[in-house]
Design a protein around this nucleic acid. Sequence first.
DNA 1: AAGAGCTGAGCAAACGTTTGCGCAAAAGTG
DNA 2: CACTTTTGCGCAAACGTTTGCTCAGCTCTT
Lengths: 336, 336
Amino acid sequence: MSEKRPTIVTVAEAAGVAASTISRALKGDKRISPETRARIARVAQELGYTPYASARALSSGQSGLVGVVLGPGTNPFYAELLYEAVRQIGERGMRLLIIHAGPGPVENSMADALLQYQVDGCLISSVDLPSHVGAVCTANGVPVVMVNRVAQADTCAVVCDNAFGSVQLGELLLRSGRRRTALVRTSAASSTARERDAGFTTFMQSAGYPPSLRLDGRSTYEGGFEAGRHIAALPAAERPDSVYAVSDIMAWGVLDALRLAGVRIGQDIAVVGFDGLPQSARPIYDLTTVEQPVVAMIGRGLDLLQARMRDKGLPDETISLRGRLIERGSSGPKGR
Amino acid sequence: MSEKRPTIVTVAEAAGVAASTISRALKGDKRISPETRARIARVAQELGYTPYASARALSSGQSGLVGVVLGPGTNPFYAELLYEAVRQIGERGMRLLIIHAGPGPVENSMADALLQYQVDGCLISSVDLPSHVGAVCTANGVPVVMVNRVAQADTCAVVCDNAFGSVQLGELLLRSGRRRTALVRTSAASSTARERDAGFTTFMQSAGYPPSLRLDGRSTYEGGFEAGRHIAALPAAERPDSVYAVSDIMAWGVLDALRLAGVRIGQDIAVVGFDGLPQSARPIYDLTTVEQPVVAMIGRGLDLLQARMRDKGLPDETISLRGRLIERGSSGPKGR
DNA sequence: AAGAGCTGAGCAAACGTTTGCGCAAAAGTG
DNA sequence: CACTTTTGCGCAAACGTTTGCTCAGCTCTT
């Protein structure tokens, strides 16, 4: 059977120093001499010592945990975000505590988790009512960063420049000769969808070709599919020559519905999306889209978070990152 | 500014009892009288008291955390598993600590996380080398349950009966008159894929119609797509009349490749998969598949885990659950 | 050569909860 | 009525780290 797991005093005795010295040496305090530090590192290594996070958290008030609230939807974009967050949080020597994810609303127990585990910071990327969450966090001095969501009252945020991306897509459509554009939007109240909607509409209007059709649906594949069916069913004269779906997942639905109806993508009609999910590169979709800089978004988000862990009272900040236009076959032969 | 967060002694003083009484009352110790318990509950509620998880963990050795190791792939099945795990772990009053997820191998820092945060139990659903992980856990007395993976040396496991599901699919294919079957497998060394492969092959052989073709690829959409292209490129005489892809995600690839090549699904060729992901129900796929009982798998997995948290030294156990055959259009007109 | 500043490390008090043990008072037993 | 059992709760010692002080021995200054 395994011996008792070594604690800091086990190491201290083995190294012939005080526990406090171990603690300081292991976190790089300059007051400890290089020789002592090296010896301690060696002894700790030999003993297989690793600190108890609970003791550390209790004593220092820092848990090393980042709470993550994910959206309720099944949008694979959240999976991207999560995977990247796991990776980067690990790289920064912290761990990730899932507060909520998957279908269903954010529950109240969420607030408990934040408090109980003394989460050092919180990354939120949920659509619905993050206001309450934000309130709980700020009330307890937990820094919050919204990712892919516009800042609520007093929180930081990292967003993709949805308006800019929408303009890029609009320009691409116009350049390839499209003039009658349908906008597939979502009825969900997410800031992301609203900004894409508004950015595109404004641009197209100012260019003289306002969207000729607007369709609302749930922010899912199925929502897009419905919209696509509707478009396919229109008489040829009324049918738009291009579709902007405000998310890749909706664009997939549009594409599949159109194809099932025999509409030729890229020829009869151009389809573009927004998110840049890997699945959009599949030959079957070959979707023109704007790629959200997920790596950078998480990275800057954690930067903001860590800065505020060190120094609370830093002013709120919103970082806007531009996505990359990826032109593929769904918008027709390469423009220009 | 917010007052100091209440601790157990804050509550104790407010209720006029000892801290130990608070502790016991809040976890339902029968030695505390109903009246006292009610009063304490009320006071705690008023003060907005919630215990510090770190203090609790330090004192009791129980963190209330379940570690989850997810597979490296981008298979949406892992997302299903994760969402369900988050839900059920929350329901059982625990929290979920992500040890690893997403692409890339399980790193060594994982073991540290297990120890540092004193994870009470661990749910593993990763393909590659979970052996090391298992070893670390058992060496430190942390119960482990493998989900959707066959038990390694001394761990519990919850699996879907892959052989049975494969037989169900084989019977369906035979019933609808298919005789020349292709098996799209994966070169990955996952037990799941192996069992499905073996189960299907054995059944078809004993029925007198062994698979006429075997294709290996990565366990991804792209792997399936490659296989589908290969099949579509075969001269008509050699082409199989049905395909069993050992996962839904691979089946999607097969379907898309075949469709792009002009092959009519369900008529020229039947395609079936395994996993029962929601996406397989989309009209564009309409995939016949075997649905893994995700809810039950996580549920039974947590049962096993919690039983072993209470009583270590319980013998290892493997639970096999049967999936549900979902017949859809991809396998042709509904069989009798 | 004596005082001041540095360097490197130890002491001990937190941090908030759990839990074994102890001990009154109330209830049951003879 | 004297005794034992039960009920209900308090005491205080852990649990493993961090961190503000303290302090001895140096190295510089003057």
